[in-house]
Design a protein around this nucleic acid. Structure first.
Lengths: 350, 350
DNA sequence: TTGTAGGCGTTATCAA
DNA sequence: TTGATAACGCCTACAA
């Protein structure tokens, strides 16, 4: 039985029911099956009828219902992208690349933001599952375990990108090999005469942070010659960072170069250094592990690791599509290498 | 009749059908109506049964189907955001604000990218309509007419943001009042002694560009005293821009200040000026109509108009929600004012 | 308080 | 070649 009979259709005349395939069929004087066949280029419909149908479609502005299609097909051409934040340039580029691929494959990309909150992340992904998303590409939050477990239980095809989740073998991963970048960069810095390298980080507890510290330690340790390294914990508050930074670079045993783990920290360092009157690269060198769009606009220009964001996006999309299509191969972990662009912000040696 | 009998469920064991409300009912030993009532906090279900239902939901990992819900309810808690591009910081901030509001109101925000292509814009919005999006927030492309006509015909509640579409009275608009910013900024520049102002633009044909030129013309014309203004057409290619810029600032009648219409142009100007050895602000002053995130990182710091992006997002969301809920009030056009931050890149006074 | 059934829009199957 | 119909999962009016 109908719930609501004769929709108001008030004077405002606002809400209008979108035309359905039945409306089209009625207008064209054919059956729904015929309309569906025309729309999906199925079997052979006589030219005359096809014409009538197409005309009716046009007149009514019929656009179909992805809801009904998805329900009928028991699958939805929707792919989720879960990111912790939208405001980072490389995440924007990632979304851009994925959007392009998705549209090309006739999928919809729907982006959800976890805001670094594991609970929110989970609830957003539940929602994606409720929408019967065909797959998920996720930049994991700080505590990705619950979400990944959930995805696994729901058998949601999932690809992890950007940030490696250690010991995770259930999903494909396409991540950035920061460790190698740090190792290579450190060796280069040492070769240029730097003898004290500081790694500036925001999340010391993160396993990837520990891995980065390991890399730095290996590079410096293997070099010998009295070279040292240290870690600067930057926190999450720009105001408080200024003091932390000042005391770090003003102490007797100050580093000659800082490696900043992301572009937020990089920006903080630039500002703090300026207000403290620290000249770059004479007093201090700086290398960022993320290349921001403004890398060439600072004075001196910023040395940075150019992340292979678009490459990651492409690889991740291809992997995901395979999974969506049912591939049951062993999950892979692909590590993409960034390119280190040394520019004016790094002093090259005596 | 069933289309496919007994799904393969091959050795890979990959695809699993998500549990339905029927599965839950069966497991809990109750009827579907009871389950639905529990899930929607409806009527009074006996505590014992409710418990059984909730347990079954949990055991099965039931999450419902937004597809079926949307179909049944004839409305989908989905709102589209259509932007020309994702890589601009202020668009990212916009998406962020809207996502927050949407999630708060239990809506899903789905972003589509038009890539400055009117045809793509239309096709993406058709898709949103096919998903029965409840509403649309759109940053219009260069040629928004076809899309807006389509939205109007489909009675899709729509709010236009950021970029004003002149003479468009069918939809709410929440846009930035660049004209006022240009007028005010120009007056200030003139007061500081500048006598020749150039407006650097990318799309001369755009009506908003013409309006901006009008504002500049009014400000300079009203000032008198031999003040002049001009327009620099920057094109879309950074390489070619260098030559255009060089010949513009090297001619005898060169401007003392440039107003850049967006942050892309701003960035081009900064780079070109640097490679030409033009000092800022001594040789040339610069004001950007978009404040990029790196405004404080350049030397000198960049003067810019801080756009009220988050304010726009909030207002647009509230307007849209009203429309979605059926408001038929006269559409409004709200113009938000940016704040002009004069910094080191503008020379003050003689 | 609980159960039942019809319909939302689409597609595939089967019958004509 | 075309038409009629069941089924997808959910919600709700109505019956029990």
């Amino acid at each position: 039985m109908r719930d609501d009979d004769a929709a108001p259709e008030s004077a405002t005349g606002n809400r209008r029911k979108p035309p359905t395939i039945n409306d089209v069929a009625q207008r064209a004087g054919v059956s729904v099956g015929t309309v569906s066949n025309v729309l999906n280029h199925r079997s052979t419909v006589s030219a005359a009828r096809r014409e009538r149908v197409l005309q009716a479609v046009d007149e009514l502005g019929f656009s179909g219902s992805m809801l009904a299609k998805g329900m009928r097909a028991q699958s939805n051409s929707l792919v989720g992208l879960c990111v912790p934040h939208t405001a980072f340039a490389n995440l924007a580029a990632l979304a851009d690349t994925l959007d392009e691929r998705a549209v090309g494959a006739d999928y919809e990309l729907i982006q959800v933001v976890s805001r670094y909150d594991s609970r929110r992340e989970l609830s957003r992904i539940r929602r994606l599952i409720a929408y019967r998303a065909a797959g998920l590409i996720i930049v994991p939050s700080l505590d990705p375990k619950p979400v990944l477990d959930h995805c696994y239980k729901a058998k949601l095809p999932t690809v992890i990108i950007n940030r490696l989740v250690p010991d995770e073998r259930r999903f494909d991963q396409v991540t950035i090999d920061h460790d190698k970048a740090i190792y290579d960069a450190s060796r280069q810095l040492l070769a240029w005469g730097h003898r004290h390298i500081t790694l500036a980080v925001q999340f010391p507890a993160l396993s990837v942070t520990r891995q980065r510290i390991d890399s730095l330690s290996r590079a410096v340790g293997g070099f010998g010659g009295g070279a040292r390294w240290g870690v600067l914990e930057c926190g999450l508050d720009e105001e408080r960072f200024k003091d932390i930074f000042a005391s770090h670079v003003r102490r007797r045993d100050a580093p000659s170069v800082i490696i900043a783990s992301n572009s937020t920290v990089t920006s903080w360092i630039l500002q703090s250094a300026r207000s403290l009157g620290i000249r770059m690269p004479d007093d201090l060198s700086l290398l960022s592990l993320e290349e921001p769009e403004w890398a060439l606009l600072t004075e001196p220009q910023l040395s940075a690791v150019l992340q292979p964001t678009r490459e990651i996006g492409r690889i991740a999309w291809d992997l995901l599509l395979k999974r969506v299509e049912g591939s049951a191969e062993e999950p892979v972990s692909i590590r993409c290498e960034g390119r280190i662009n040394f520019r004016g912000s790094v002093a090259r040696g005596t």
